[in-house]
Design a protein around this nucleic acid. Sequence first.
DNA 1: GTGCACATGTAATGTGTTACATGATTAT
DNA 2: ATAATCATGTAACACATTACATGTGCAC
Lengths: 185, 185
Amino acid sequence: MNAPSTLEFALAGLIRQKPQSGYDLRKTFSTTAMRHFSDSPGSIYPALRRLEARGWIVAHSPADRAADPRRRQAFAITVEGEAQLIAWVCRTVTRDDAVWRSQELLLRFAFMDSIVPRTVTLRFLDQLEAALSAYVGELRAEFRRSGSQIPLNTGLLALESGIEGMEAHLDWARRTRAQLSEVSR
Amino acid sequence: MNAPSTLEFALAGLIRQKPQSGYDLRKTFSTTAMRHFSDSPGSIYPALRRLEARGWIVAHSPADRAADPRRRQAFAITVEGEAQLIAWVCRTVTRDDAVWRSQELLLRFAFMDSIVPRTVTLRFLDQLEAALSAYVGELRAEFRRSGSQIPLNTGLLALESGIEGMEAHLDWARRTRAQLSEVSR
DNA sequence: GTGCACATGTAATGTGTTACATGATTAT
DNA sequence: ATAATCATGTAACACATTACATGTGCAC
């Protein structure tokens, strides 16, 4: 079987926080800040079936039709699922993660509470800071190189926007690291 | 035929700037700040064929094998392709664009130079600012609501990171707007 | 003459999107 | 009664990813 998609991790992480139905998860995706995930049934329900096939979640169907005629089924995380989530959030943060999968990194961070000790979260932020600052350095160098060759244009300004977004993320990582290490003392 | 993908617009935009081969485009994706696009041949070459089928680009193959035994083919933009690119960058910036397609927005901005007058670029930045500030306001409200209910956790901090990223983008849009309107005077 | 960069492609696969489909419950 | 929401699913489709495949030119 294939590597789980980001969507699958998002679903598993939410289910671990609280057992819930596919419909509940769709509502979370459509109404909260997690709205950049699609809430279409064609993505959610197959992803839940895949998680079930992996043994990461189990479906608790209502005993009989009378108990819940809407055939709502609550999913709960399994021991295996929780172990896999822990392994996922504990992965080393690479440069590639920072370049191509920054939103998955944020998702991992969001799920760290109550599943891994604070030290893991701090290490994650350290690795994120290292990866981001290295990449921002590369991009800044690229920006200077281009800027000296060609006059100011929208392409260059777009690059600047991307760099500033990364710098904001880097700044957040540093502040958050400081904040969390203070609280945990 | 389906709506063109972001990749197709990226390729068409680059080809409009300078006629080039599929391999050149792959190199651009793998070595420049556009590296978040995949440089895999399995995505690039089919996308170029789709653009050709749409009539947005034309392939200039070498006259004979002797001229270029590497059968390199240069693509150039057509009148139709350029018109479609102009229509694309001129689209009204919606809230949905800001929420789900921010990287496509940046791509549109990057390609505006020398294809639409400065006034269009300024209008784009105005619309972007409106869309972003509205959405940032929503997210800030959501953040305050959650923060008053639950204690500080990584989920909330992740949301804050996303908000700050948007605020950085918003700030960039305002500064860039000011900068461009000054230069154009 | 071996390896690397050039240059273009195909095939299998999987996932997300869109649209369609079904049926129960609640509100107006 | 009629619409909206609850609740879950399937089918068609297209795209990106990965791996594989082919052959040229150049450098060492």
